[in-house]
Amino acid sequence: MPRLETDSGPVWKRRTTSKQWAIWFGWLVGLAIAAYAWQGISEKTIWFFVQDAPRQAADIGGRMIPPKLSYMSRLWAPIWDTLNIATLGTVIALIIAVPVAFAAARNTTPHPIVRTIAIFIIVSSRSVNSLIWALMLVFIFGPGVLAGTIAIGLRSVGFCAKLLYEGIEEIDHNQVEAIEATGASGAQKMAYGIVPQVLPTFAGIGVFRWDINIRESTILGLVGAGGIGLELNGSINTLAWTQVSMILLVILVTVIVSEWVSAKVRGAII
């Protein structure tokens, strides 16, 4: 009851007293967790380095300027590789994601056990970052573009399948029922009633993920899985800061262009 009767007449408050206490308590708990978390980090930090950071930043920043433009001639191939890792990885992911999504959606799954397995595939693929996938795949396939492509593919399966199965669960059931009522078989019901409804979602997800993958594939080189990250890693290790700034510039441009392309394509689809 936000209205309280007091000696000097009724007083309006936003919340009741007990609710107000609960909120204060919530803040207190949150604050305690935050303080404890901060404590956990700060005890492992060497504060001398942190104090020295502004000077370091100025130093490195100074060495990065101007970016070494002539280095560009050696970057075209890694950019092309990065683009391929992202694109082919997305294609692989979409191919795998479609059956997984249909198995995971409540209204299309053949059996609850199949659904559980599909959900597990989705969660594991999403939980493990592409860099970790790449780390493992480099062990298997050796360093190179192949490991990177598969890593991006495996990482994206979960993302694409999750969005896609949510899309499948949101379809208009009446349209499916109408197709069923014509005497259509299960496969026909899928092709006429369900697929047309989720196709735009599917295309949108593909483009969206491609955009994210461009960004992710720029770092795979750090663990040897090909692309521009390889050059970045090499340049940082050799302290070639003008090359580093050139690479960052190139990544910036690539990401902006891919964002623009994906926005255009999505606009055309939807």
């Binding site: 349209q175 029922e177 109408a178 197709i179 014509t182 009633g193 409804q197 735009p200």
Partner: peptide, 12 residues
């Protein structure tokens, strides 16, 4: 069968 909300597959 004919439906209340038409139930046409809208994207076809």
């Amino acid at each position: 069968m004919i439906f209340q909300e038409y139930a046409l597959v809208e994207r076809l």
